[in-house]
Write a protein that binds this DNA or RNA. Structure first.
Ligand SMILES: [Mn+2]
Ligand SMILES: [Mn+2]
Ligand SMILES: [Zn+2]
Ligand SMILES: [Zn+2]
Lengths: 140, 140
DNA sequence: ATGCAAAATGTTACTTAGTTGCATTTAATT
DNA sequence: AATTAAATGCAACTAAGTAACATTTTGCAT
């Protein structure tokens, strides 16, 4: 199912370093998107905070992860679809922001809506997001 | 068409102050959403930067304006639908983020999509946004 | 294996949006 | 005109994110 961090790095033309592998592993096992501050806290022994920023930048640029801006304006990151690469991100799913725990979840939805816009607007991509209570928060 | 800033303030239960009226006027005439830094630059003689933050907070809380988080994580504000108030925001339109100029536009679309989510997720509101080139940027 | 160049990292300093506390002023009501 | 809650100004602070630059490491060629 999940490719090894090592395989992910080499298939996206990225050098293999300790913190990159750890961040890929961590995001792969997470149920929700994670921010730099989240990762900084977990990996403060393994890497400098600036390195974590740069790691996230590189991984996003190469199509390994995608960024979601949460309701407070902070960037959170999640693993991409397999088909993403440096040319094109294909993460056209819904992002669910839990108002209770603050987590952001990537959820697959049947299809993104199409619609028409006023003359002159050229659409490059569409985003659908929702706010509410996540599954974990609504049961407890 | 547009209500006077004075009327807007009194109908939403807000005291009439100079900077509030100026900010309402300014947002009413703007084609796109504006951030605190935008407004701070325009009104640096008229009010302290913190006052502008607090003005935006109050106006949003009472349903006069709504907040959109742009692609850089910064909050931008636009005038609400007439039906918005402190109980409920009804700004369920599309937000278009121009990748060229950075402006965010509020655009009316026929209807927001409906979709189904995994068990347990409780939706409170849905947001649709798009990225691309705005009308002004695509003609020039 | 060794050497090399480009890429990645650590460290420090910095920028910018946004918040907090507190003293002072002002708007609305009486 | 007096009163008081709300709004403002000012200073200090927090937190996410960026930039510069010296040092180390990776991947590759020899
Ligand atoms: Mn996602
Ligand atoms: Mn809007
Ligand atoms: Zn939750
Ligand atoms: Zn534009």
């Amino acid at each position: 199912m999940k490719k090894s961090a090592e395989a992910v790095l080499s298939s996206h033309g990225l050098r293999k370093t300790g913190i990159r592998m750890k961040i890929i592993d961590r995001l792969q096992e997470s149920e929700f998107a994670m921010s730099q501050p989240d990762l900084e806290q977990e990996f403060q022994k393994e890497a400098d905070r600036v390195t974590i920023y740069r790691t996230l930048y590189s991984l996003e640029e190469k199509g390994v992860i995608h960024r979601i801006i949460d309701l407070t304006g902070v960037s959170r990151y999640a693993i991409c679809e397999d088909s993403c690469d440096s040319q094109h991100h294909a993460d056209e799913h819904l992002h669910f922001h839990c108002l209770n725990c603050g987590n952001v979840y990537c959820l697959q939805v049947p299809a993104l809506p199409s619609y028409s816009l006023p003359r002159g607007y050229k659409i490059e991509s569409t985003r659908l997001s929702a706010e509410g209570t996540c599954a974990s928060c609504s049961q407890s």
